[in-house]
Design a protein around this nucleic acid. Structure first.
Length: 954
RNA sequence: GCCGAAGUGGCGGAACUGGUAGACGCGCUGGACUCAAAAUCCAGUAACAGCAAUGUUGUAGGGGUUCGAUUCCCCUCUUCGGUACCA
């Protein structure tokens, strides 16, 4: 034992080992990916991060670790694996930061990227960093601008279901006008070929705008005064901006839009061809929101005008007792009668003063006004009053509806409030559970529809509407065209100039990228114009033309970045055709659900557009999508009570807190807490003094503990002041962020990776459990000690026993299967089991340990690389093959069957694995304990489940 | 409100097509080593009853199918995620 003191055991020193192998991998370009490989390709993509100022916390790398494990696994299996990483570096936070601090976004972004890069490198990822992209890099956004130009120069042909060049559309206009064209377009008047030829250049440009896939239009936008910009619908939560929670109001502005609605049908249908989770597909299809219905015209009594509505329930037309227009509907001013003028104006004023926020928070409140006009029911000639109301939306359908109170809850509420007639038209008595909205029941009070079931009635009347020329069948989508303009600085400038008539023109490829100019003042102008508009030398060109001053939104760069990774240095194309041909699409995409409807839809749209133009070769960009859950934190807080008499403060230890008194809750930085993560975390005396340094306002406060009330100085040394734990997200404001760097420094990157996987299923959200990481740490040490003893590696060349081979191959089998179904947590469990089993056998045989090492390599790249080299290998383990299971070692010779009587286990018996069912039956009936139980009688049935169990039914 | 997912020990979670529920890890209890602590190792750990063998109850609650249900079907409750006047 004396000797042992002087002969230190060889330990696994993670920090030394990690830096050594990181350097080795870099010098030997282990993770360099080739575009000219003869191997089969596999593309594993992570959703690239926005490099925020606060760096990574332990939640961010979860998905990256999973994708890294999978990439390494595929690479070891012999695939050429593209596993790149980059940065989504344009966006609001950097700009907000710039406004506050004056530091230019490009500087803070570069700094943040470096920090992210460092943190990522710490975790041993196998990214090919030579392919890194950043969306704010001009060599990258050159192609973002280029794609926008392509969108501008294309229109969508519904008949061919394809984007086509705008020149072809002009040729069609020249020869036949716009009458016979089935294009995705904004509303506009019909015109003939000769009319087209006589239009001015300006008018032609305006008309073409209605067809372009990137177009300008005046629209109500979500204007956020506090942020000084318009926001997309998905940047608003509950009527306030998602970032900052500022109020949002509606404001008309001329904006760029992308005609994503042209692709709605394909975006919906092609969901069937991709491997996304069911809930993800449902989220997307709800967002697209396809509905089949009918366009229907109502004569307006005494105006010689027609009112166009959209309905999915044409069958209910005999129950239509009023019409409703959206307040912004263009006919409102034209049809309002003098008598109703006052009340309509009052209502319109009311609507205008209401922000989006008010509308949403009082969604159930019924408001509206009567225009004085009447529409004529085309089927029975009845006069129907026309109302306006907030609950009808301008942007959906035609912005006008026929209201059928008997069959629609909203119309019903409206009819009740304003005392309008309710005509019963569907008898639902035979469908007891059916709600008002269900398409079930039998028609009544509906003339020729009477007696029909609802679906039959819809069918019949739709046919009649078309035959009578009253309208036609129509498909509608909830999805709107994407607003593509931001009145912001830190984004891609539009490659657009306006001529003297204000007609937009695109820049030629030679002038791309249009570099975002330097600017000192990033604040938006008061009039809502973008910061770039202040830079007149940039805006105004020598020929009198002006530049577009808005910038592109956050989703621009992220809509196509995965293509750039294929060929990031290319200066002539977004990526070379041969590179795209080789990599094609993403085989596995890993990221959070929060991008379900935003990023994923936009990028699928762009990819389809590029597919139409022949730049990409698959209709969908992502074959398979895996959504990782979030890692939650635990926040710690203390209860503070203010004494009524003298205004002094007293902190109350959690167990002493009385339910009825009022408390202020203050969050405590988790690093001051003792027993963090246990059921009874507390502050000790030094923790309290740290906390008071952090919140000096309460320096004089008393602390109430079991031992009594004390000031912080008087506290007994052993006192425990208990705090309150809550599951919460990790956030700076709750002081509960856990930095991966600290965990890596303490436990090593391998342990960190294994632990994040071990926490639970990847797709599930789960709390970071600081304490149980020790278990994984123990595994790493035990695994190490399988290979290393005292002075070094101690593997023997001895032949492995059948038992040992079985343990190994069981592990290979389980881990391979679990990897294929992305069950990483059970992989780690299996490694622990196997390592314990081998430990129990004192197995140190190379024949077993070497394949086991390769099996673990994707999970623990540093540890396995170190051991691999200690065993005498000179090449990286990550270039070695992944072990293959040999089932011959797993064959069971004897199987222990549980023997049950009426489902209850009564004993066991060992039978040969290959025994057939009749033989098993016969052997079982002869068992002593079975005979005792049967006691002479014969069982009704013997159920034999080969390999599993035998059950006798008496 | 609607759509979706999920509810298993003190905790995170296993159980792949119905077949001995609670693998693996944390925590806890006891023991070994130690002057002592840490570390490490060994044993135990769903609940109830029992010295024990063992028995009974148990996968949110209720019902059903089955020889057998955490798994399949119906109803109810709870939690989380998405969405919100879409005609």
């Amino acid at each position: 034992s004396y000797l042992l003191y002087f002969c230190p055991l060889m330990e696994f020193k993670s920090s030394e080992v990690e830096s050594k192998w990181r350097l080795f991998w870099e010098q030997n370009q282990i993770y360099k990916v080739s575009n000219n490989s003869s191997k089969q390709k596999y593309y594993v993509l992570d959703m690239f991060p926005y490099p925020s100022g606060s760096g990574l916390h332990v939640g961010h790398p979860l998905g990256y670790i999973a994708s890294d494990i999978f990439s390494r696994y595929k690479r070891m299996q012999g695939f050429e694996v593209l596993h790149p990483m980059g940065f989504d570096s344009f966006g609001l936070p950097a700009e907000q930061y710039a406004i506050q601090t004056g530091i230019h976004p490009s500087l803070s972004t570069a700094r943040n990227i470096n920090r992210y890069r460092e943190q990522l490198d710490n975790l041993g990822f196998s990214f090919d960093w030579s392919r890194q992209v950043s969306t704010s890099d001009p060599s990258f956004y050159k192609w973002t601008q280029w794609i926008f130009i392509q969108l501008f120069h294309h229109w969508y042909d519904q008949d061919r279901s394809q984007a086509r060049p705008i020149d072809e559309l002009i040729r069609i206009f020249d020869t036949q006008g716009n009458a016979g064209i089935n294009a995705a377009h904004s509303p506009g008047p019909p015109f003939t070929a000769s009319a087209w030829q006589n239009f001015s250049e300006k008018s032609k440009s305006d008309i073409l705008m209605n067809y372009r896939l990137a177009y300008r239009k005046e629209a109500f936008v979500n204007w956020c005064e506090a942020l000084g910009t318009v926001l997309a619908n998905d940047e608003i939560k509950d009527g306030v901006s998602e970032r900052g929670g500022h109020p949002v109001e509606r404001k008309p502005m001329t904006q760029w839009f992308l005609r994503i609605t042209a692709y709605a049908e394909r975006l919906l249908n092609d969901l069937n061809t991709v491997d996304f989770s069911e809930s993800m597909k449902i989220m997307q299809s709800n967002w697209i929101g396809r509905s089949t219905g009918a366009q229907l015209f109502f004569e307006l009594h005494g105006f010689g005008k027609k009112l166009e509505i959209y309905t999915t329930r044409a069958d209910t037309i005999f129950g239509a007792s009023f019409m409703v227009l959206a307040p912004e509907h263009e006919l409102v001013s034209k049809i309002t009668t003098p008598a109703q003028q006052a009340s309509i104006s009052t209502y319109l004023q009311f609507v205008n003063t209401r922000s989006e926020r008010d509308r949403m928070s009082e969604a159930k409140e019924v408001t509206g006004a009567f225009t004085g006009a009447f529409a004529i029911n085309p089927f029975n000639g009845k006069k129907i009053p026309v109302w306006i109301a907030e609950y009808v939306l301008k942007d959906y359908g035609t912005g006008a509806i026929m209201a059928v109170p008997a069959d629609d809850a909203r119309d019903m509420a409206f009819a009740k409030k304003f005392d309008l007639p309710i005509i019963d038209i569907i008898d639902k008595s035979m469908y007891p559970g059916a709600t008002i909205e269900d398409k079930l029941g039998r028609m009544i009070n509906s003339e020729f529809l009477n007696g029909l079931e609802v679906p039959e009635a819809i069918e019949l009347i739709s046919g009649k509407i078309e035959a009578m020329g009253l309208g036609k069948k129509q498909i509608n989508f909830k999805m709107r065209d994407a607003n593509y303009s931001r009145q912001r600085y830190w984004g891609e400038p539009f490659p657009i100039v306006y001529n003297l008539d204000g007609v937009p023109q695109t820049l030629p490829l030679e002038e791309l990228p249009l570099i975002l100019p330097e600017l000192d003042d990033f604040k938006p102008s008061a009039n809502g114009k973008a910061p770039l508009s202040k830079l007149s030398s940039w805006v105004n060109l020598s020929n009198g033309f002006t530049r577009e001053t808005d910038t592109m939104p956050g989703f621009a760069g992220s809509s196509w970045y995965f293509l750039r990774y294929m060929d990031p240095g290319n200066e002539r194309e977004l990526a070379s055709p041969s590179a795209i041909e080789y990599w094609k699409d993403v085989d596995l995409y890993v990221g959070g659900t929060e991008h379900a409807v935003g990023h994923l839809l936009y990028s699928r749209f762009w990819h389809k557009f590029l597919y139409d133009l022949g730049y990409t070769f698959t209709p969908e960009p992502y074959k398979r999508l895996l959504n990782q859950g979030k890692i939650q934190g635990i926040s710690e807080s203390v209860f503070l009570q203010k004494e009524k008499e003298n205004g002094s403060y007293i902190f109350v230890s959690k167990p002493l807190k009385q339910e009825d008194s009022e408390f202020i809750t203050l969050h405590v930085p988790i690093e001051y807490i003792k027993d963090y993560g246990s059921t009874m975390p507390y502050l000790d005396k030094s923790g309290i003094s740290q906390f008071l340094d952090f919140m000096p306002d309460y320096r004089e406060a008393l602390f109430r503990t079991e031992q009594g009330d004390f000031t912080s100085k008087e506290l007994p040394a052993d006192s425990k002041f208990y705090t309150h734990s809550e599951l919460a997200k990790m956030s700076k404001s709750l002081y509960n962020v856990i930095n991966p760097d600290a965990v890596v420094a303490e436990y090593g990157a391998d342990c960190f990776r294994l632990f994040e996987m071990f926490l639970g299923p990847l797709e599930q959200s789960k709390p970071w459990d600081t304490r149980s990481i020790d278990g994984v740490g123990k595994f790493v040490r035990r695994f190490w000690s399988l290979f290393v003893q005292d002075s070094g590696i101690h593997c023997s060349a001895e032949q492995a026993s059948a038992e040992e081979l079985k343990i190994l191959h069981k592990c290979i089998k389980r881990v391979t299967e679990d990897l294929e179904r992305f069950s990483f947590n059970t992989c780690v469990s299996q490694f622990m089991i196997t390592s314990n089993e081998l430990k129990g056998l004192s197995c140190n045989k190379k024949e077993i340990l070497e394949p086991l090492l390769r099996l673990l390599a994707p999970f623990a790249p540093f540890l396995t690389e170190e051991l691999w080299h200690m065993m005498g290998n000179h090449q990286s383990i990550h270039l070695a093959g992944f072990p293959v299971v040999d089932n011959q070692y797993l064959i069971e010779r004897i199987i222990t069957y549980p023997i049950c009587i009426n489902g209850k286990k009564r004993g066991t018996a060992d039978y040969p694995a290959d025994a057939d069912v009749p033989a098993l039956e016969a052997l079982t009936l002869n068992l002593d304990f079975v005979q005792k139980w049967l006691d002479g009688s014969v069982p009704k049935k013997v159920v034999v489940v080969p390999g599993k169990m035998i059950n006798l039914v008496l």
